[in-house]
Design a protein around this nucleic acid. Structure first.
Lengths: 329, 329
DNA sequence: TTGCTTTTTGCAATCGATTGTGATAATATT
DNA sequence: AATATTATCACAATCGATTGCAAAAAGCAA
């Protein structure tokens, strides 16, 4: 069923049918009705690709993900896709992985598909190769990064203030009477240093800078939690609270504390980061920093559609993290 | 950069450029080289939409998901997208939710986008409304269902044999000396009955049919696990093993058993279903049935591309589940 | 050089839409 | 009734590709 088929059946020209479909003026009510009935009857839907050809807008948005299986990423993708759909956009989702080469390749694919804009999900896309590829192939289209920032004239970034979040965690622990607060972290990513600064900010705020106790671990896994917890209870028995830079590590810490029969939160309070699925089902359930994935995604999608309709938008937006208090505090 | 721009710069016609791009024969080596150099130099990539218009193949695959945030679904989407990409297809992912109305709406969108085929992720799409919509709008395109089956001439389904899987669980428990094996389930979905039959099969196989003990719970949540576990230890103290129709329920059961100081697996063994993320980080870690998501996705994607290239394929494929033995047995 | 193949290449139509411009029909004005 | 004015509509070009067919160029034999 093409527009011509409908036109023939209605005894009018294709242009008239097109004008009816797009609600353009200058069509007699009678013919409009006649055409509309035919459209319904034959269940006609316009070919969006053909439309895109002449309109120079495909209503397609490329969504680049590092790993869709990562629950934070899929949470973002979920709200982004939903919001975009509300505005009539379709989401072309590509799993680009963590290799910059593959990311660049994916950007090429999106260029070929003539997407109207790009959404980058996850901070993994903050690298030179991606930046170069975007500069070369997407300089005229809005690029929005959910959970990160790129310094390009057409790029927009939404991120959560992790530094402030960790500072809040320190506040909370302080308010619970904790004075010896340790920090377990795998230093390496920019984000981990942000968190570290937040930890230092928090301590400083309460005059606890002298008590700083950073335990570095090799990864951000549950096993790293084991390692961190053992070091903690072994070498620093005076510690009464610990902030883990990731929920998964908090999970490991809790496991060890349970085994050693150390009471949570009275003897030792635990705070995680990221509000992951583990936090809720853990025993005891984990107090954690909400990563604001839904808000980030919503905001990112909104900025994208707004840019697409010509509005001016700020290039960098910070969201504040909030604490999700549960049993470990 | 269009094909015409390149043609002009090369001093040839657009058709020649097209033939070079598509490696068609009948082009002099010299002109081929000249054109290819220009293509490289100007970083040309063909407009896939324009291509699709004349080729009547968009190289787009619509992926309908009930909920991309569900880790099993995203696992499927991951492998599917990856495999499809290998064959030059792009994935148009739509989150259709669990409402048939929205699913139908999504199918309409995919028709508009002229996708070459459709992948349905999750058994939620096994319903009449979706079937009707597919029959009306997608009758000429392959439809593949990962983790389910639809009875349409152009539909293909890949599913795991959950019945056999649960039977295997009974086998395992029997081999561990367990003779009083209970089954906690929320009956309602077709899948839950499959599992129930597997449980019965397993008992029958070992002459344990008399010992059948089914505990129905209202949902498939961790709380349902609590409920099931309490009923179990309260009313049936003789039980020495329990199969939970979902990992999340197993998690709840374990929590209760831990609280009551019932030793796992000696006093009570626990088996879950689905190999979810919880099973691994739980304490003790959960023995569970692998849902074969990667295999299912891989197979589904392969069938889709094979159908698209004209091959004949079976319409229903069963994968066997395997046990992932961990600490709870 | 002429005539005949065989390669190369360009023209023009096509895919399914949209849209500016001009033609035609309907209505209004005098 | 003749003319001016609108309201409707159709024609044709266009978007960026692909492809059958015919034309031009090149190769070859005589």
């Amino acid at each position: 069923m093409t527009i011509y088929d409908i036109a023939e059946k209605a005894g009018v020209s294709a242009s008239t049918v097109s004008r009816v479909i797009n609600n353009k003026p200058g069509i007699k009510a009678a013919t409009r009705d006649k055409v509309q009935k035919l459209l319904k009857e034959y269940n006609y839907t316009p070919d969006e690709n053909a439309r895109g050809l002449v309109n120079k807008a495909t209503k397609l948005i490329g969504i680049l993900m590092a790993d869709i299986r990562n629950s934070h990423h899929s949470e973002l993708a979920y709200v982004v896709e939903k919001k975009l759909r509300e505005y009539g956009y379709c989401s072309l989702i590509l799993n680009a992985g963590y290799e910059p080469k593959m990311m660049a390749e994916s950007i090429r694919i999106l260029e070929q598909r003539k997407v109207d804009g790009i959404m980058l999900v996850g901070s993994a896309f903050q690298n030179d190769i991606v930046e170069k590829e975007l500069r070369e192939r997407m300089s005229d289209k809005p690029v929005v990064m959910a959970n990160g920032y790129l310094d390009l004239p057409n790029a927009y970034g939404i991120l959560v203030d992790e530094r402030d979040g960790i500072r809040q965690s320190v506040d909370l622990l302080y308010s619970k009477g904790k004075r010896k607060i340790a920090f377990i972290v795998n230093l390496g990513t920019p984000s981990s240093y942000e968190k570290l600064h937040g930890y230092e900010d928090g301590l400083a705020k309460h005059g606890l800078s002298e008590e700083k106790m950073i335990i570095e671990v090799p990864e951000t896994t549950i096993e790293s939690g084991f390692i961190g917890a053992r070091e903690l209870v072994g070498k620093h028995p005076e510690v009464d609270a610990v902030i883990c830079a990731e929920d998964l590590m908090a999970l490991g810490v809790i496991r060890i504390l349970n085994e050693l029969n150390i009471k949570i939160p009275t003897q030792m309070a635990v705070v995680g980061v990221n509000n992951s699925v583990y936090g809720e089902v853990s025993f005891p359930s984990i107090t954690t920093l909400d990563n604001k994935m839904s808000e980030t995604g919503l905001m990112a999608a909104q900025i994208l559609v707004d840019c697409l309709s010509g509005e001016e938008k700020p290039h960098k937006i910070m969201l504040f993290s909030t604490l999700v208090e549960r049993e470990t505090t």
